[in-house]
């Protein structure tokens, strides 16, 4: 009886969600499927033109590039971040908090400031090139360019890979590891047959948490790529704030959204399979 009454508390939010979550997404879908003047509803007509434009060579290159860069940065974050998570999870308890804290300080700083910091290092007359010329080495031209964008992505998103893996690793029952070594597994065997499989849920959420912001970013590519490294995020941003072409911008957003939602669904299936999978593969 009480149950039925308490659910009324959610009704205002249901209305809120429909206005501010559902309708805006439908508006985006609507604009992606029409053409005409956005400020004159009578001029709008159904059209798939915006989706066709996505296959234009220039745009397709940017889209492919954003997936490529996001993929590479996720992979690098994984290989760089897994050992970090493992080290923090296995270090002596008295150092753990302080190590974790200093690992997290940079992400507590403003995201824009962190990216700006790399600009001061990598720009043509920045810190790195000053240092190199001081050492008598030739200058590098990393920024603007893809390497700089990749570095920026890894720098900004590495903690998102480390944290979920660390959380899962620190929850692993120590007796499982002891059992493995009692049963004759060496350290490497224990790692690949026990620790790694047990940390899959953390790896999966780490991958999604890095890949998603990386594929949709427009800040990192703008600031460190200097406008030459346009990604899908830059294309969307330009359509809305520069060219006022909502139709094309909406089509790009819908494509980005669908790709991300599909990959999330695939990833979460992978994760839950592992949770209730019963007999593990090894």
């Amino acid at each position: 009886m009480k149950k039925n009454r308490a659910k009324i508390l959610a009704y205002p939010y249901m209305v809120w969600m429909i206005i501010f979550i559902v309708i805006p997404l439908f508006l985006v879908l609507f604009y992606s499927l029409t053409k005409g003047n956005i400020h004159d509803p009578s001029s709008l007509s159904f059209s798939l033109e915006s989706y066709a434009r996505v296959f234009d060579r220039n745009y397709l290159t940017s889209i492919v590039k954003s997936f490529k860069l996001a993929f590479i940065s996720t992979l690098l974050c994984f290989f760089l971040g897994y050992p970090v998570a493992l080290i923090i999870a296995t270090i002596k308890a008295k150092y753990k908090n302080i190590l974790l804290m200093f690992f997290l300080v940079p992400i507590w700083m403003n995201f824009l400031l962190r990216t700006y910091a790399w600009m001061s290092i990598l720009s043509p007359n920045g810190f790195l090139n000053r240092l190199l010329s001081f050492l008598g080495l030739p200058a590098l031209s990393i920024m603007p360019g893809q390497t700089a964008v990749l570095l920026g992505m890894i720098y900004n998103f590495l903690p998102f890979m480390v944290l979920p893996i660390y959380t899962v690793l620190s929850k692993i029952d120590k007796s499982v590891l002891e059992a493995a070594s009692d049963l004759g597994a060496n350290k490497i065997g224990t790692f690949f047959k026990v620790i790694l499989p047990l940390s899959v849920p953390g790896i999966v959420s780490g991958i999604t948490m890095v890949f998603m912001p990386a594929v949709s970013t427009f800040v990192i590519s703008r600031l460190l790529g200097g406008g030459k490294e346009s990604l899908i995020g830059n294309l969307i941003e330009e359509q809305f704030s520069l060219y006022r072409d909502w139709h094309f911008g909406s089509a790009l957003s819908i494509i980005l959204m669908i790709v991300i939602l599909i990959s999330m669904a695939v990833m979460s299936r992978f994760e839950s399979d592992n949770d209730n999978g019963g007999a593990p593969i090894w």
Binding site: Y13, L25, P213, S216, S253, M257
Partner: peptide, 23 residues
């Protein structure tokens, strides 16, 4: 309710941003 509630968490910020702006 939970599925709709989850949309802003799952969607890339840029999509949430432009969708609200469109509204």
């Amino acid at each position: 309710a939970l599925n709709i509630n989850y949309l802003p968490v799952l969607n890339p910020d840029i999509v949430t941003g432009i969708a609200l702006m469109t509204l």
